[in-house]
Amino acid sequence: MQNLVTVFGGSGFIGAQTVRQLAKAGWRIRVAIRNPNLGYAMRLHGDVGQIDVVQANVRNEASVRRALEGATAAVNLVGVLYEAGRQGFQAVHVMGAKTVAEAVRAEGIPRLVQMSALGADPAAASKYARTKAEGELAARDAVPGAVVVRPSIVFGSEDHFFNRFAALAAVSPALPLIGGGKTRFQPVFVGDVGKAIARLASDPAAAGQTYELGGPATFTFRELMEMMLRETGRRRLLAPVPFPVARLLGAVGDLAAGVVAPPITADQVELLKTDNVVSGAYPGLPDLGITPTTVESVLPTYLYRYRRGGQYADQEDREMAAERA
């Protein structure tokens, strides 16, 4: 096996795929998460003894240093989609990235991969996009050779995009199209993102580079909702919601964020004002020898659970259900 890599946030949606790919590549892996009790299944992604789970919080320097002891590479995947209590954008995306990178430098670890996001921009109106960019800068300030990874929206069986709207479509007669649903996305498969990160952690030639990860096609928000509805066999009204109205809805979501996962926040509304597609100015999946996976080939493998009749509903059943829904 290769040397030891510490993966911060390794039990999450993207983290689990990253750990699986690193294990396939022969790394010994230390998964560093806030609540180790919730990461018991991580050891099943590799051989016996290949994967360990330890406690670490990117807001606590001492725990980060302990998690990095003896490592030869580090991956920081920690991030939040909305702010709740102490888990704020500034604390996690900026200060967390700074803490990890400075600890990587102090431990003399040669490779660091920092997760960011498409649209990261220090001048962005969205706090999410702005702090993602600030996190990139903080990581590279401490470790100039840090590799930055910027994916578009990531899809897969446990994603927070298609699952969220499919669940909403199961109970609501209408789905909101923020800003008319014209925002463009380039969805990227979580397995492809995991492969990319695993390859970048092993490649010294990638030092200091930024990678934009997008899928093989672009879609508007409306097109993605229509695709989801076809796959789940439901007919729902797609209701355009102007940005000013959506921002009011997002403000309500902000108030609920400390208690439940909000359907949308004001900052997410701000994000939807900008397309989320690769710029072409940076290398991506093809440059890593990875053929991007299509959305159409993966959605049926997990959206079946939102159909009437579940995975056993055939096409005719789904069409009939769509007419009734």
Rank of each mutant, 00 (worst) to 15 (best):
E102C: 10
A167D: 14
N57I: 06
N3K: 14
E323D: 07
T6N: 01
G46P: 01
M95C: 04
G70P: 10
G253R: 10
G191Y: 00
T72D: 12
F243C: 09
K127I: 04
R43I: 08
E296S: 14
P216E: 03
M42N: 07
G26W: 09
G85Y: 13
V147C: 01
E107C: 13
P242N: 06
Q186W: 06
A196S: 05
D47M: 12
A201M: 08
P240V: 09
R34C: 12
A198I: 00
G26R: 09
L175P: 12
A313G: 06
V113F: 12
A139C: 10
A84W: 10
G96F: 04
A198L: 01
I178Q: 03
A56M: 11
G12T: 13
Q186M: 06
T232R: 08
N60M: 07
R247A: 12
F185V: 09
P300M: 06
I153D: 05
R59Y: 00
E61A: 15
I14A: 11
L22S: 05
V64S: 06
A205V: 07
F8I: 11
P262Y: 11
A217W: 03
A23L: 09
G289K: 09
G49S: 11
V100D: 00
S152W: 03
V53W: 00
G181P: 10
L81K: 10
A281N: 15
R86N: 14
L285C: 08
P300T: 01
D47T: 09
T293A: 11
A246M: 04
D141F: 08
V104G: 01
S279V: 10
E212H: 12
A170H: 07
A74S: 14
T301P: 12
T294P: 08
G253T: 04
F155H: 14
H45P: 00
A246T: 07
G181W: 05
T301K: 13
Y306T: 02
G179K: 04
R65F: 04
R184E: 05
G250S: 11
D121E: 09
N37Q: 15
Y302F: 15
K273Q: 15
G156A: 03
G119K: 00
P36N: 06
G253P: 08
V58Q: 02
G135L: 05
P244Q: 13
